[in-house]
């Protein structure tokens, strides 16, 4: 089976993070596991997930945050910066 296009995967990842904002913090590996579960092992691999995350971060749609570990989140203004 053909691989999922990187933009389609990126969109799905973005939706996962956005829909669970405030309820779940996503690590890159969590997104990878969830993507493989969603699209199937033959359609998504580790490198494709890396590329999709890179796409989202480079476009500023997701940012890395640090709260005792590194997570991916939708950009927002944090309380500490106020």
């Amino acid at each position: 089976m053909a691989q999922v296009p990187v933009m389609e995967l990126a969109e799905a990842m973005y939706k996962m993070v956005k829909d669970t904002m405030g309820m779940k913090k996503w690590k890159a590996t969590d997104l990878q596991k969830a993507s493989i579960e969603m699209f199937g092992e033959g359609n998504v691999d580790k490198q494709l997930c890396k590329d999709a995350i890179k796409e989202l971060v480079n476009n500023g749609r997701l940012v890395y945050t640090y709260f005792g570990g590194s997570f991916l989140e939708v950009p927002h203004k944090e309380g500490a910066a106020n």
Partner: peptide, 20 residues
């Protein structure tokens, strides 16, 4: 001090440690 958070440069997830 409070540390961590969202700060960084575009595209990178490391190299900056937020501190307030």
């Amino acid at each position: 001090w409070k540390h961590g958070g969202i700060v960084g440069v575009m595209g990178y997830g490391g190299g900056v440690i937020g501190r307030y």
